[in-house]
Simulated assay, not measured.
Amino acid sequence: MLDDHVRHHDGVITLAQALRVGLSEKAVRRRVQSGHWRRCSRGVYFVDDRPFTDAARIRAAVWGHGDRAAASGLAAAYWHSLTTFAPHVVEVTMPRNSHGRSRAGCRVRRRDLVRTDVVERRGLRVTALPLTVIEAAVRRGGGPALVDAALRRHTELQPLWAAHVRNKGRYGSPAARRLLHAAEGGAKSEAERLFKRLLTKAGITGWTANQRVAGYEVDFVARVAGYEVDFVFRAERLAVEIDGFAFHSASDDFQHDRIKQNAIALAGFQVLRFTWLDLTEYPERVLAEVRRAISAR
C-alpha cells in the first residue's frame, strides 16, 4: 500500500497518509533520519529515491497547507494541463479562517471557495477548470493565450462566466471580465483598432481599411462586388484579415472564410490573417510578417 501511494502521488506522502497505510510515527522518523524520506514541511515528506518533479513540488506545497487547501492560479493551470511549464511559485488557496502562512516557493490566498469551484485531480485538491482559467489568465505567464487554448480544447465560455460571477471581488477580477468580453466576440473590433495603431506607430503606410476586393464584371451592366477585407495594401496586392479569438470556429464561418480567402488569392492578393492574440502577444512578429509581405511585391 505504501509503494502504491508513493507511485501514484509523485513520491509525496503526509504523516496522516503514512499512518493510514500502516506506518507508525516512529517508522516515519526513522525514514527521515536515514535520509530515505525528505521533510518538505510539517507533516509532509518526499520519498527521496526519485526526481523531485514539478508535480511533486506542487503537491507538497498544497498538502503542506492542510487538507482544505487547493492549488490555484498557474499551479492549478499546470495541474489541469492548460500550461506546459509549472510556475516557480505555487499559489495555494485556503479558507479565510484557516491558519498557516506563505512559505518559500508558495503564495497563499485566503478565500472561501464553493464546492463547485474545487475538484480533486490525481489525489490533489485544485480549483475547478473554469475558475482556474479565469484566475490563471490574469497572472504573468497566463494571458489571453491561455483563455483561447482552454476554449478550443477544454471548456466553453458559459462556465467561465459562471465561475467569474460566483467569485467577484477576487484578485484580477476586472482583467478577467475584459478577457471574457473579448472572447465573447468583442475582440475583433478592438483588434482592428490595435492593428491600425501598430501600423501607424511602425510607420507602415499605403493601406486602407474595410475595402472590397476580388470583384469582377459579369456583363456590361452587372458586377459582383467582391469581398470586404479588413486592410488592403493595393499597390502591394496584400490583404490582411483580422480575427478575434482563435477558438471561434463555427463550421459556417469557417467555410465562408475559406471561400473568401480563395477568391481574394485568385484575384492576385496575398492574404495574411492575424488574431487578437497575435496582436496582443506577438506584435513584433505581426509587423515583421507585414513588412516581409510588402517587400516581396
Score class of each variant (00 low, 15 high):
M1S: 03
M1L: 06
L2M: 00
D3H: 09
D4C: 03
V6E: 15
H8I: 15
H8L: 10
H9R: 08
T14E: 13
T14H: 07
Q17W: 04
V21H: 01
R29E: 12
V32L: 05
Q33T: 04
W37I: 03
S41R: 12
V44K: 01
A55W: 14
A56Y: 12
R57Y: 05
A61D: 00
W63T: 10
R68Y: 02
A71M: 00
H80W: 15
T83E: 04
V89A: 10
P95K: 11
R96I: 13
H99V: 03
R101D: 02
S102P: 04
C106L: 01
C106T: 02
R107V: 12
D112Q: 13
V114W: 08
R122S: 10
L124K: 07
T132D: 09
I134M: 12
A136P: 07
G141W: 13
G141Y: 07
G143F: 05
G143Y: 09
L146G: 09
R152Y: 12
W161A: 01
A162W: 10
V165F: 09
A176Q: 12
A182E: 08
G185A: 01
K196H: 10
K196T: 13
A202G: 13
T205C: 14
T208H: 07
A209S: 15
G215D: 14
E217Y: 07
E217A: 06
F220S: 06
F231R: 14
A235M: 03
E236P: 07
E236W: 04
E241D: 12
I242M: 13
D252I: 00
D252K: 00
I259Y: 09
V271C: 11
V271G: 09
R273F: 08
D278T: 06
E289L: 13
R291C: 02
R292M: 14
R292V: 14
